[in-house]
Amino acid sequence: MKRIYISLAALCLCIFSSNAQNISDLIISEVLVDNDSSVVDDYGNRNGWVEIFNKSQGTVNLGGCYLSDDRNDLTKSVIPKGDLKTKLGPRQVALFYASGNKRQGTFYLGFRVHKESTIYLTSNDGRTLVDSIEIPASLPADMSVSKIPIDNKQMVFVTSGEPTKPTPMSFNESGNNETKSQKMAREDPYGLILTVVSIMVVFSALIILWFLYGTSGDIFKGKHKLTKKMSGKNDNEKSREIAAAISMALDAECNGEVYAAIAMALDKYQENTVHDMESYVITIKTGKSEWSSGQLSFRQLPK
């Protein structure tokens, strides 16, 4: 019994630990130094900024982590704890203004960003380096240095070799914006590959259906080995017997009313007025007419 409890506890631990926040999933995704026309902060100033991206599928709390531009002083600017906005959801970004005045708010850094420097993101223990990004000396104004995804599925990022157009507060798209259609035009200009593959897929799908319906049909018809074993007689034999029994019963018992009912059902079926949309079923529904209407048979009350 103890083993079961221990196993359950271990399982719970695994589940909770897998959902727990992982600071190592944070990256410094983009940095802009000279801000002439990019975003304005809450105080109306155009500062440089640092963007942090959560590449995991879970929520990560930035609170307590540090940003710095000095390798020897990794705790230069702390991100305050207790602010709900520091919780980054999956694939979300946070933008920190490098105003040099930490007291301006949660999302303001105590230093300014400069070219030819490195920005460090440090874990809340103040020692573990989570990520860093180098700012080149040649970074033009209003251009940023950013990390772009080379594998969107695995969330693998590399620093872009060239300055990029700033995209604050949004996921950095990879430089390769080629659409599927453009890619297809390049790789298969005459469309032959797509055509052959598509025809094969259409045929495969319908051949599988053919096989499945064929097999199920055999089972229902009684031709399949299994059903043959289960019942000695097949459906055709049974239906012939039933038909013979019905005809004998009709011969013996039927009067004109039965024939009239069958004739009326067929007539209604041909008119398509009472058929209830089921195959092989003819239903006679009682329709309302002046003869059967209760309302019309009432006498008018005297005024």
Binding site: S198, F203, I207, L209, W210, G217
Partner: peptide, 24 residues
Amino acid sequence: ALISQPRLILIGAAAQMGIFGAYL
């Protein structure tokens, strides 16, 4: 009609050549 004669499904696949012919 389709369930009773599953082999006819293949005709439905063949006629889709029109789509890919027009694509080319």
